[in-house]
Amino acid sequence: MQKVVKSFGANTVLNALDLDIAKGEIVSLIGPSGSGKSTLLRCINLLEPIDDGEIWFGGIDISVPGYDPNPVRRRIGMVFQSYNLFPHMSVMENICLAPVRVLGRKANDTKAQALALLEQFGLADKAKSYPDQLSGGQQQRVAIVRALTIEPEVLLLDEITSALDPELVGEVLDAVRNLRNTGMTVVLATHEMSFAREISDTVCMLDGGVIIEKGSPESIFTNATNPRTRQFLSRVNSR
């Protein structure tokens, strides 16, 4: 991403932000609320058109106005803070919608694959439940499975643990760790510093719509050079 600018009215959320993400890399975005973490993820998935700059994905600038976003989104999965499951569909229907409608898979094959994933996430008995019948943690795990069934190359996680109970955070951590072995590229916005520290290859500190510091988890969390990063981390850690 080069010099990406995104404004909502007079409010500039991303201010000429640069970021390179390598294939298979796990990148954490940290920073105060309103620093642009979520907006950045939404821009990568073309849910928000950017006002200036370029977003390159696999050798193509996908941010050109009029570029068909659907093929890009097929290669990028996204999980939201508020789960955003479809309440009128069962867990199984939620998961199978995109593979069947978008990728044109056979319903039976998709179901088998979905069941395997549900099992892996400890949700095998929930396939027929509806989202409102599940706990928040269960809903979020379903959302992750749903994002995985389109077999994306990149997974965007938008503060997915913010609403989870502590017990489940560990489970999600395990899941993301497993993804690393599959070579999945993951970009996650998070307020969970220990989560970011444990899981990431690279940590980016956002403030005021730009990345003010970027580096390995060790360097950021133990040896930050930017005073704003140090201030932010000490506040978070003192909670």
Binding site: R42, N84, F86, L97, L103, R146
Partner: peptide, 8 residues
């Protein structure tokens, strides 16, 4: 947003 992010 969720539906579009799945490529629908």
């Amino acid at each position: 947003a969720a539906a579009r992010s799945l490529g629908l």
